[in-house]
């Protein structure tokens, strides 16, 4: 009888852990729109991934842009990716938030400037990838209280929150000065924070999920 209770206890604990682990999973939806065909890139050709930050309500996170860049550069079919800061600093003042081209046609005007054309040639740029979006917490529930006393301290309670990541990548073909297409990624997930003396965070990796999915889709779009 005692053994049966122990086995049941173990099974319930395992079930609880599995429920909690599956609960903080995130879901991603990817949409792709292709306007023009893409050419296979030479091994020396490179892409630059830039974040749009002109909107007053949000700004595309630097770490999201670098995450997509790192994912694109990794693996056997990895692309040559120019880091955002290196590119924006080298092209200053033409790719600042308020001065960056908003349309692929504006690149034509930029390359009329010999200094800019020379820099583009140095980078061996083939595609510009502009990412616009952000990750936001859309809902919060529950509460956690912490207390400290002479005998020690601890936290008790339960909190949960929903995160939503929405990003859109516009791919510009620099050689043909045309929009190649757009890829959007929408990821949602719920995180949990139960606290029994010590808070145990179970975080839904929403931004990371959107980054990996978007990078994989861009890679397949360009290859």
């Amino acid at each position: 009888m005692h053994e049966q209770i122990q086995t049941l206890g173990r099974q319930l604990t395992l079930l609880g852990v599995l429920v909690l682990l599956s609960a903080c999973n995130s879901k991603t939806r990817i949409d792709e729109y292709r306007q023009n065909p893409t050419a296979i890139m030479n091994s020396e050709d490179s892409v630059v991934i830039l974040g749009r930050r002109h909107s007053s309500g949000h700004e595309t996170e630097i770490d999201f842009v670098s995450c997509v860049g790192d994912s694109l550069a990794s693996g056997e079919s990895g692309l040559q990716v120019i880091p955002e800061k290196q590119f924006v600093d080298a092209m200053y003042p033409y790719f600042e938030t308020s001065t960056a081209p908003m349309d692929v046609k504006n690149l034509d005007r930029l390359v009329q400037n010999p200094a800019i054309a020379e820099k583009f040639a140095d980078f061996r740029l083939r595609y510009f990838i502009w990412i616009d979006g952000s990750t936001e917490t859309t809902d919060k529930k529950g509460s956690i209280s912490c207390a400290v006393g002479p005998g020690g301290g601890g936290c008790f309670g339960f909190a949960t929150w929903d995160d939503e990541a929405n990003y859109e990548a516009s791919i510009w073909d620099f050689e043909n000065l045309k929009l190649s297409g757009k890829i959007s990624a929408e990821t949602t997930g719920t995180s949990y924070l139960p606290a029994i003396i010590v808070p145990i965070p179970m975080l839904a990796r929403v931004q990371s999920g959107a980054c990996k999915s978007m990078a994989a889709q861009i890679k397949s779009f360009l290859n």
Binding site: Y92, P93, Y94, E96, T97, S98, T99
Partner: peptide, 13 residues
């Protein structure tokens, strides 16, 4: 720093 960069860019352009 971002505001300085923006002002410098606008001035130069």
């Amino acid at each position: 720093n971002s505001a300085f960069r923006d002002a410098g860019a606008r001035f130069a352009l």
